[in-house]
Nucleic acid binder design. Structure first.
Length: 370
RNA sequence: GCGCCGUUGGUGAAGUGGUUAACACGCUAGUUUGUGGCACUAGUAUGCAUGAGUUCGAUUCUCAUACGACGCC
């Protein structure tokens, strides 16, 4: 089935939305945070451990699975869910972000984007049609259009050109899309230019996607500009479709962008920060490797209900991380993912109570207070 | 006891008669936003066993002392 978004309530003082999203694998509340499982695994965690963090959807990556093990292997396994033993909804990114992170300007053509295979150096062409074909085979619940994610800084001239190309790519992908169980999202680009964002939204809506993503943010631009880009996109997006802000996961950014009307977020930060020894709490982001935790026998976060916080001390986790033990990375990953999901639970409650601005102000005070 | 070699930071060590003593690990702190998973950045010996001498100048050359490895009685 196609996903279905139900708008339940709009917060009284802001554009924040409370909703549900119906999927092949159940109905989940929004705002939502999606953990990232690039290579069909949330790094260091088992599906059971991810599940215990109470996520809705998780994310996997077309580019990486295309290169390894290949979409046919996943297809023959019976699809991504069976392959990775995940019985919840999955969203696949299209490879658009890899245009930003891996490709050089000269590699971007009208037909598609040339990449160097990171594993063996082969020159590969990823096109909008190919990206959709791969995602159809992966059989995720939600597929993304293949877009160009442009970094910062950039010129208006280039963004104008890029938005048109992204729109043509969206149309090409939609034309070959062929999976009844799967939904397809369009991606709004246009950088910090309101008229270009508006134009992009209008053209995508004409194509009638199952949901809309906001792209081209969290690529090095100032925070205020990110929030503007989200405003310029949400302002024109239809209310009856879900909105996914790609790649944003800083706690403050999640709050600010929920306030501006975003429903879904994803970010590698909780797992990457964890692998590098950092953990988040309401009182800020901390480095477990710091000497001050050497004999700190308290838990990471006394407000947290995760497995790590229920069973282990900072001193022990510090020891594991410093000893390069993967169990330490697992414990911090579990904690950080659960932290961001708890944040979305709080935000849903704040929308119900029409006090999200108070929640934001109090959170910022605590988070930067340290 | 004699001979010979050695002694550089928390560790393993490189090195030179003349500005800031290489590098690695460790340690201290920071960064990380649709992930090229165990990364990156910065700091970390005012001092080269101790004492004396040669020299304009010594961690580097000489002598003595201490400590250590090896060989011989």
């Amino acid at each position: 089935m196609k996903i279905k978004y139900n708008l339940l309530k709009e917060e009284k003082h802001t554009n924040a939305r409370l909703g549900t999203i119906e999927t092949n694998y159940g109905t989940y509340e929004t705002p939502m945070f999606m953990p990232v499982g690039t290579q069909a695994t949330v790094k260091t965690l088992s599906p059971e451990e991810v599940k215990a963090c109470k996520p809705g959807i998780i994310l996997a990556n077309t580019y990486h699975l295309w290169l390894r093990p290949g979409e046919d292997v996943v297809d023959h396994a019976g699809g991504l869910h069976k392959f990775m033993n995940w019985d919840g909804p999955i969203l696949t990114d299209s490879g658009g972000f890899q245009v930003f992170s891996l490709a050089k300007p000269k590699d971007i053509t009208e037909e598609g984007v040339y990449f160097k295979n990171i594993y063996n150096g082969d020159r590969l062409l990823l096109t909008p049609e190919k990206s959709i074909e791969i995602q159809n085979k992966l059989d995720s619940d939600i597929a993304m259009s293949f877009d160009e994610c442009v970094g910062f800084p950039h010129t208006r001239e280039y963004i104008e050109e890029s938005v048109e190309r992204t729109l043509r790519w969206a149309a090409r992908g939609k034309k070959v899309f062929n999976n009844e169980r799967q939904s397809l999202f369009g991606i709004v680009q246009g950088a910090e230019f309101e008229d270009l964002r508006k134009h992009c939204v209008e053209e995508l809506v004409k194509m009638d996607f199952d949901g809309y993503s906001i792209g081209g943010t969290a690529v090095g631009e100032p925070k205020e500009m990110q929030y503007e880009q989200v405003e310029y996109s949400c302002k024109y997006l239809p209310k009856d479709k879900v909105r996914y802000l790609m790649g944003v996961g800083d706690p403050i950014d999640i709050i600010e962008n929920v306030i501006r009307g975003v429903d879904i977020f994803d970010c590698v930060s909780p797992t990457r920060l964890a692998r590098h020894g950092h953990f988040m709490t309401m009182h800020g982001k901390f480095n477990i490797k710091n000497a001050k935790y050497k004999e700190d026998f308290t838990t990471l976060d006394d407000e947290c209900d995760c497995y790590a916080c229920k069973n282990y001390t900072k001193a022990y986790i510090r020891h594991l991380i410093r000893a390069d033990e993967t169990f330490g990375q697992r414990l911090l990953s579990i904690h950080n993912i659960r932290f961001l999901i708890r944040l979305t639970e709080d935000l849903r409650e704040a929308i119900k109570n029409d006090n999200i601005l108070e929640y934001r102000d109090e959170f910022i005070k605590k988070y930067y207070g340290k």
